[in-house]
Simulated assay, not measured.
Amino acid sequence: MRITQGCFSFLPDLSDDQITAQVEYILSRRWAVSLEFTDDPHPRNTYWEMWGHPMFDLRDAKGAMMELDACRKAHPDAYIRVQAFDDTRGFETVMMSFIVNRPAHEPKFHMQRTDFEGRSQKYAWDARA
């Protein structure tokens, strides 16, 4: 099972050239770039660890790619994602997010459905190795 979160998650992994093209698109829209990583990709885990600071003044994709390389070296078996933020309204809005690094072995999740009072149903997730 592949973790599918963000843009492009149903496609094969992006190459560095494709990632660079996406970062160039982000910068052309004057959005800020941010890198985040985690070893817990559970769908409800929306708060990943931030790598460095958001790159608000970045104008060249090479800077983001250098940071991505450094993050990959420090966390080779983590999920790493690129996020694009639009701050034109005075607060940051995530405009784009996509995974750029995955561990060699991805965890699997199982959804358990249980019938409850009346016709209600409860759902629970558990991680499996």
Rank of each mutant, 00 (worst) to 15 (best):
L58W: 00
L58K: 01
L58H: 07
L58M: 08
D60S: 00
A61M: 02
A61P: 06
A61K: 04
A61S: 09
K62A: 11
K62M: 14
K62C: 10
G63R: 02
A64I: 07
A64L: 07
A64E: 09
M65D: 08
M66R: 15
M66P: 08
E67C: 00
L68S: 05
L68N: 06
D69F: 12
D69R: 14
D69V: 10
A70V: 01
A70M: 05
C71N: 02
R72V: 08
R72T: 06
R72S: 01
K73V: 07
H75E: 07
P76M: 07
P76N: 03
P76C: 04
D77H: 12
D77I: 05
D77C: 01
A78Q: 08
A78V: 10
A78F: 15
Y79W: 00
Y79K: 03
I80D: 05
R81V: 04
R81S: 05
R81N: 09
V82W: 08
F85I: 09
F85C: 10
F85N: 10
D86Q: 10
D86F: 10
D86C: 07
D86Y: 10
D86V: 10
D87A: 12
T88K: 15
R89W: 11
R89C: 13
G90F: 09
F91W: 14
F91H: 15
E92M: 12
E92I: 11
T93H: 14
T93C: 11
V94F: 09
V94N: 11
V94W: 06
V94H: 05
M95Y: 08
M96F: 13
M96A: 12
S97A: 14
F98S: 06
I99A: 04
I99Y: 04
I99L: 02
V100Q: 05
P103K: 03
A104N: 13
A104G: 12
A104S: 13
H105V: 08
H105N: 11
E106H: 03
E106Q: 07
E106N: 00
P107N: 09
P107M: 03
F109V: 02
